[in-house]
């Protein structure tokens, strides 16, 4: 099993942490993992993306241009990465923000109203956890419980009071995927 994923959105939406959390979870499950961020001027307010690869075997290139799954949190990301999903692959997108959805018919498309749900939870910062929950439910790359374990390890202890809201967000995201 090898899953090659691109997470993309605006800087500040938590796109890089989503990929990092997934990589961390993969590591906890003894998988090979690689996380490659875009860095540079685009990190400062523009679009941000990261490639995350989870595999049972050694990972060759950390930088790839075709993906099994694209996770898009804004319109430019859908526009840029829809064509780069491998046939039979998956797109998961925030349907609250993205008004022109992907149109390909040879891939599986999941519309998750992430920003709307984050709004319902009264915490816009958990958007990334909602979408990550949807991703894990859709792709089963790692166990849901491992992601929460990863978050507990990554998050400094002074922020641990935020774990329940993140757990909730993650579950809300999962509940939007019926497969």
């Amino acid at each position: 099993m090898t899953e090659e994923i691109i997470f993309a959105g605006f800087g500040g939406q938590g796109v890089l942490s989503m990929g990092q959390m997934l990589a961390y979870a993969g590591m906890i499950e003894n998988k090979e993992v690689c996380w490659m961020p875009s860095y540079g001027p685009e990190m400062r307010g523009g679009t941000a993306n990261c490639i995350t690869i989870i595999s049972d075997k050694m990972i060759s290139s950390p930088i790839i241009s075709r993906f099994d799954t694209a996770v898009a949190l804004n319109q430019p990301s859908v526009d840029k990465f829809e064509s780069r999903v491998k046939p039979g692959g998956t797109i998961i997108y925030d349907s609250t923000n993205i008004l022109t959805p992907p149109t390909r018919t040879d891939i599986t498309i999941y519309a998750v109203p992430g920003s709307e749900e984050a709004n319902n939870l009264k915490n816009l910062k958990v958007l990334n956890m909602i979408i990550l929950g949807a991703f894990v439910q859709a792709r089963k790359t790692v166990e849901p419980a491992t992601v929460m374990k990863a978050l507990t390890s990554v998050l400094p202890e002074r922020y641990h009071h935020l774990l329940p809201i993140n757990q909730k967000a993650f579950e809300v995201g999962m509940s939007h995927i019926h497969n």
Partner: peptide
């Protein structure tokens, strides 16, 4: 190089 410096692996 910059990519290996910036990327995360186990």
């Amino acid at each position: 190089d910059g990519a290996i410096g910036q990327m995360m692996e186990k």
